[in-house]
């Protein structure tokens, strides 16, 4: 921080009876008594915190005594500074940060004449240094990035569902045709993935029973809803959150007011 160019601060003195040194409180003795009270309460709370910790009291007692101790001591200290210490106001000169023209030219000259001219005289070395550093900078990122994880390849496009996969719930129990009543919903996984991270994050599917008859959602999908069962990925295409809300189980009109 010390700076030679700074004007030294004059060592000023004030007589002890100068009004700037008086407290701002109108009645300092009363304020002092109040602050003393705050500090006594603060100290008692702090001691209480020690005792509460010793006997392993409930968390709220620990927090109340710790917080009370800090708060009351803090309020006392703030009041001491605000009401009993010299009221001032005091002033400090602000000197311009900028140096004079000669100093500024000196710095610019050192950078440009003494420094840049060295590089300008040897453009080949300068170019090689710049290029080398640039390549190093890029290559240095490799271990930071490439070591961290595998390349995605096509993994985002595939799940573990295969033709003939058995549907199991989260406990691994196979789902049979008669298990779901009409209007109910269950989260299912291809058997064997229900306990894996990937199964839960990627393969999760909701199985909904809409009716007892084969259910056709649109033309050309006559066989897609056997016995009223339909299944959709549980992952929302928005942010990949699981979709856990099913209108049948919600208060009426949660989505649309009818």
């Amino acid at each position: 921080m010390s700076d030679e160019s700074r004007t030294p601060v004059a060592l000023a003195g004030l007589r002890a009876d100068d009004p700037h040194l008086e407290p701002s409180a109108r009645n300092p003795h009363v304020v002092e008594a109040v602050i003393a009270g705050l500090m006594v309460v603060g100290t008692l709370c702090t001691a209480g915190f020690g005792a509460a910790f010793w006997v392993n009291a409930k968390p709220w007692i620990l927090g109340a005594t710790l917080g009370g101790g800090l708060l009351f001591l803090g309020l006392g200290l703030i009041a001491w500074g605000k009401y009993l210490m010299p009221r001032g106001p005091f002033v400090e000169e602000r000197h311009p940060l900028a140096n004079d023209e000669a100093e500024r030219e000196g710095l610019a000259s050192v950078v440009m004449d003494r420094g840049a001219s060295v590089i300008k005289r040897r453009p080949l070395l300068g170019g090689l240094l710049g290029g080398g550093m640039g390549i190093f900078g890029i290559v240095a990122m490799f271990p930071l990035l490439r070591s961290l994880g595998p390349l995605p390849k096509g993994t985002l496009f595939h799940t573990d569902w295969r033709k003939g996969s058995y549907l199991v719930d989260q406990t691994g129990r196979r789902i049979h045709e008669g298990d779901l009543a009409v209007g109910s919903i269950v989260t299912v996984f291809p058997e064997g993935t229900e306990n894996t991270d990937r199964g839960q994050a990627v393969d999760q599917t909701v199985l909904i029973r809409l009716s007892n008859e084969n259910y056709v959602t649109q033309k050309g999908r006559a066989t897609w809803g056997p016995k009223g069962y339909v299944a959709y990925s549980k992952l929302c295409t928005h942010l990949g959150c699981p979709v856990g809300l099913y209108e049948q189980q919600l208060q009426p009109g949660f989505w649309e007011r009818s």
Partner: peptide, 11 residues
């Protein structure tokens, strides 16, 4: 009050 420089010495 009129602001005054911070006193270094209190006499």
């Amino acid at each position: 009050l009129e602001p005054t420089p911070v006193p270094t010495f209190i006499e």
